[in-house]
Each structure stands twice: as structure tokens, then as C-alpha cells.
Amino acid sequence: MSAGPLAQIQIRDRTGEGCVAENGFCPDWIAENLDKYWTPLLEHVYLTVVSVAIGFGIAFSLALLAHRRRWLTGPILGVTGALYTVPSIAAFFLLLPITGRGNTTAIVALVAYTLLILFRNITTGLRNVPPDAVDAARGMGMTPRQILWKVELPLAMPEILAGLRIALTTTIGLATLAFFAGGGGLGEQIYSEKAGTGGLFFKSNVVVAGSLAVALAAVSDLLVLAAQRLALPWRRTLRTA
């Protein structure tokens, strides 16, 4: 009597089809379909890297500007702060009529979100440079430009890279919603329909795509951390001393 259902379960496990139809968590199905996560993952990386790179360029220029003209800091923080507060889904739909569906809309919105984080960290970094170091550099006859590039920016680097790490993890999280704007990414997999039945949220997809997004954030965080250790050797000696 009891052999019937047991046998059924075994057959289902082997084929994996019953598992998918019941919206279970199906390791077999995942193993077979692993390659379908590759494109969304690459799209996700592309969205993140391009957005953070553009955002960094803009925030860096704004920070240098605000470094020269201090009174600009407040207004820039206000505007980037307001941009940052607008929810990303709302931002995607607000941009749709202007930039249309696709990567551009997603990237414009994601860039807007990196601005506050990066600008705030770059200005804080520049502001925390010890005045003595700047004085010493001036005393050695450095021009303001030399002081900026050879003294202030290297000393501000830890803060700047900390901002870059926050911007990267935040953007990776937000990019999961980029598919609303037609930008693709892992969110499309998370949101996707159950393989056969048409309901939302197929468990296997949710787990794999969600974990990939978290793993991507962790890996990019560690990469910047490693770059920081390589690029700023004096920090290491300072910390051990």
C-alpha cells in the first residue's frame, strides 16, 4: 500500500518535472538550467559597472568643484539627497516617457542613486585631510593642482573607496529592479513566472537568482577591499604600527 506514493516521489525526484510543476525547490532542474542565469548575471554586472563608473565620474567632478567652492556643498547634497529618496521603481517609471524602455532608463536611474553616496564620501575624505599635510606640501612649493592630486586625493582614498563599496552593493541591489525599465538583470529571474504554470515566483529561480545577487555584492565588495589594500600600502603599515 505505502509503496505507491513512495515510488511516485522517487520518480518525480529523478525527472524533476513534478517538482517544477509543484513550484518546489528543484536542485536537478537548477543544475540542468544553470546556463540560463548566465546572461542575466552579465546584464546585472554590466548595469552595475556602467552606472557606478558614470556616477563616480559625475560625483568626483562635483566633489572637486565643491572642494574649491565650499558653499556649493549644501545645494549639491540637497539635490542628490532628493534624487536618492525617490524610490527606484518610481524613478524607472518616471523616466520611461523620457528615455524609453531599455538600458538607458535603468542606467540613468542607477547613476542618480550613486551620486549622493559617492559625493558625500569624496567630500568627507577631502575634508578630513590633515591641514598640516596640506601646509607642508605648500611649503615644499607644490601648486594647488599638485597638492590636490599628490596629497589630498591619496589621503582621502580610504573614504572614497568606502563610498565606492557602498555604491556598488547598493547599485547591485537596485539593479534587481531594473527589469521594470527593460534593463534586464537578475531581477527578471527572481520575478519570473513558475516554469510551467504561470504563477509568480518560481522557488528555484528565487533562490538561485537571489543568491547570485547577494554573492555578486559580496564579491565586488571584497574586490574593492583587495584593491584598497594593494593601492594604499601606507594604510597597512599605519594599522599595524
Binding site: 552593493t169 541591489g173 527572481i190 509568480l200 518560481f202 533562490v207 537568482a209 537571489g210 555584492a217
Partner: peptide, 16 residues
């Protein structure tokens, strides 16, 4: 908290 996308967290809860 920053690294876990809210959509993923919500989807996880809804699915499981």
C-alpha cells in the same frame, strides 16, 4: 542588510 535586494527578500518570503 544593504547587500540583500528587497525584491529577492520579498520573493523569498512569498515563495517559501
Amino acid at each position: 542588510g544593504r547587500a540583500v535586494p528587497s525584491l529577492a527578500l520579498l520573493a523569498f518570503f512569498i515563495a517559501f
